[in-house]
Design a protein around this nucleic acid. Sequence first.
DNA 1: ACAATAACTAACAAAATTGTTAGTAGTTAA
DNA 2: TTAACTACTAACAATTTTGTTAGTTATTGT
Lengths: 125, 125
Amino acid sequence: MRKKESTNFENEQFLFKVCELNSAIAMISGRWKSQIVYSISQGSDRFHLLQQELPNISETVLARQLKELETHAILVKQEISNTVPAGIQYVLTNKGCDLVPILKNLCEWGKLYEGGKEISVAPTI
Amino acid sequence: MRKKESTNFENEQFLFKVCELNSAIAMISGRWKSQIVYSISQGSDRFHLLQQELPNISETVLARQLKELETHAILVKQEISNTVPAGIQYVLTNKGCDLVPILKNLCEWGKLYEGGKEISVAPTI
DNA sequence: ACAATAACTAACAAAATTGTTAGTAGTTAA
DNA sequence: TTAACTACTAACAATTTTGTTAGTTATTGT
């Protein structure tokens, strides 16, 4: 649980006020989280499908990350009706869907420089 | 220091292999980090200028975050020559510069939904 | 000479995140 | 009816991140 009197918490709040960038980063930071969003966008929209994609994640941790993404309204839980067995589906909201292309950009950025693109500094004129 | 035998570390490595997205997120996660990148891009490129922009950050923490950004080649430290007093300047690399527009997108995304844009789910057809 | 500024570091403590263990409840297939 | 599958939760422990304290070195302004 978060301590509301800690410097850590105060600094987080400070950054949230400086720019929405910081709250955005906070929502997608955290082990597994953005990968879960991406996997759901690719169709792995059920608990057990996500477990298959991420074999190292424990059920407890997966449930926790999903709940946090739900708290931030990036996804919602929906009961699947008319199916046997009835199950739970995770569906990205419009907010979550809008995030996906940004995650793709981040991915491309990472690939570019991992892939050997030279890193340099623009010369000062 | 990182424990190289922990589940936490192994899971991090697993995600890094799944997709570059996860290493990208790891590079920009962390208190202050993306705000520092953005502030440098806006011209606050010296230690004391960053301290002015982020009055709640301690020197130790700022130095640490800058070093981590340097480790990931997002910025480099440069001595400013021909100036009195001679100082240190933080300069974004091309990798760091390429990150800035993505951070701006994240910021816009955050603003949009904080600003009251309705959050909904596309109806299943 | 002395205080102030700039740019740090090491060692430690506090807090937060991540992972583990041991459970629950409802359905289904053998 | 028993085992397996799906989808969880609470309490706790391990690990990591973040912040604090107390220094350093070099330069500058008074």
